[in-house]
């Protein structure tokens, strides 16, 4: 038995995020990583090697608009939580014909006629109070139970994860050191 809203494998494949170029940041490619959430659907984050997030997306096989649930989840994983704004969450319905033949057949045969609904989260680059350009970063390190999102300057932002900084051991001189971390394997 599966939870309501869970995607079957052909749908997961049909909805796999496309890996292209980093959005308005660098020329590097973005990589899609699936992350654990308490929600029944699939949550994916598209980010470049520096950790700048192009887009995060949550897909669920359901009629409901999951925007509020996604926002609530993101607020628990974002520093500061105020980065998660309703205007940055956008809904899309996938009926089947646009997802390829396998997904179309699957959705067509669903007795409940449910589409797949996707919530995208895209935070555009912005300036902080000091006029410094900020971007949304993601940290996938093992120290976190699921990805941690945070805003940081474009350059060097990958070293500024607030979750990792909070866990870093302090030296006797009270100078904070960076904890050795290993990237989580895909």
């Amino acid at each position: 038995m599966t939870r309501a809203g869970t995607l079957s494998l052909p749908l997961v494949r049909a909805l796999r995020a496309s890996e292209g170029r980093c959005y308005r940041h660098c020329d590097q490619g973005v990589r899609a990583r699936t992350a654990a959430t308490p929600l029944p659907g699939v949550f994916q984050v598209l980010a470049c090697p520096s950790g700048v997030v192009s887009v995060a997306m949550y897909s669920e096989w359901s009629r409901r608009d999951a925007s509020r649930s996604v926002a609530a989840f993101l607020r628990t994983r974002t520093r500061p939580a105020s980065l998660v704004r309703a205007t940055d969450l956008r809904l899309a319905t996938r009926h089947g014909p646009e997802l390829g033949p396998r997904a179309e057949r699957l959705l067509e045969r669903d007795p409940r006629r449910r589409p797949v609904r996707v919530v995208y989260w895209r935070v555009y680059p912005f300036q902080d109070a000091k006029g410094v350009d900020q971007r949304l970063f993601v940290c996938h390190r093992r120290a976190h139970t699921s990805p941690l999102f945070y805003a940081a300057p474009s350059e060097g932002g990958e070293r500024a994860c607030p979750g990792c900084a909070a866990r870093a051991p302090r030296s006797s001189g009270a100078r904070r050191r960076t904890a050795p971390q290993r990237a989580r394997p895909s």
Binding site: S18, G20, L99, G100
Partner: peptide, 14 residues
């Protein structure tokens, strides 16, 4: 699709 334009193009073709 809020991804690459190629993804939206593929969806149209599908």
């Amino acid at each position: 699709f809020s991804e690459q334009t190629a993804r939206t193009d593929r969806a149209w073709r599908d």
